[in-house]
Design a protein around this nucleic acid. Structure first.
Lengths: 137, 137
DNA sequence: ATCCCTGCAAAGTCTTTGCACTCCC
DNA sequence: GGGAGTGCAAAGACTTTGCAGGGAT
């Protein structure tokens, strides 16, 4: 089924370059709507549907990381690393740190296997208030 | 702000007892819509809005656990344990196992502290296909 | 009687989809 | 020119909200 090899053709277009540039302009996770808002504020014009579609493509290609916030809204951010990893996210300002730790992955797989589960995946995110936001009150 | 002491009055009503009974009839996480479906299948009649409202109340009271599935939909289940814990959830049938492991909690707190974050919380859920579902094809 | 609770339907969000047009190769 | 890409508006899914009637204390 999916061998992860073939990749559909991706044409370089105006919309994609704008979206990519906007993603690059910050290191925070943003919703599709917020990203679209930023693009509009820059005086550019890209359809909201295109933003959604493009973010999904980028996510499929591993070009952006995505996660859901506590409201269930999907958030996207340019991907910094290739490997699977998790995030430490500031609730206040949205700044994120990438966490690396194989223990979590291994533990998740192991505990799932122990219970006879297969096709295992997991979600793991850590939220808090970063040092800067604490200092800022 | 919130001292977790005062509790609004909760009247025992028909809808609430039906919802509670339906929650008790399974150990799986269910969406509000699925729960409403089950109630209807039982021949009972409770409005969908009431199911949503009641599940929120129950969640506030700590009577049910809730989490979001990978589609962002909220799932509820009667609360089994007091302590903070995580879940191993079958994507196919929704059956869940509760996971206990202090390592995750400690690691999350430690790594957050290392980055200067405070007021730390985290989300962690493991998804897979349970043995029964695999056997069932 | 009072105020909480419920049902129904309308409204709100976030997101996806259909379709015609446009642009890249 | 052909098919990927885009924009717009409509549609979908989940959830919340407004309001009037019904039930618990």
């Amino acid at each position: 089924m999916s061998n992860g090899v073939a990749q559909p053709s991706r044409r370089p277009t105006r919309a994609r370059s704008i979206i990519r540039a906007t993603l690059d302009s910050t290191d925070r996770f943003m919703s599709a709507q917020r990203l679209h808002e930023m693009i509009t504020e820059q005086g550019e014009d890209v359809g909201l549907a295109t933003v959604y579609r493009t973010l999904q493509l980028f996510a499929d290609d591993g070009e952006v990381d995505c996660l859901r916030d506590s409201d269930g809204e999907m958030l996207y951010r340019k991907c910094v690393r290739e490997a699977h990893h998790h995030h430490l996210i500031c609730r206040r300002c949205g700044v994120t740190k990438e966490l690396e730790d194989l223990t979590i992955e291994q533990w998740a797989d192991a505990v799932a296997a122990k219970h006879g589960f297969s096709s295992v995946s997991h979600t793991f995110e850590v939220y808090g208030v970063c040092a800067d936001c604490q200092a800022a009150g």
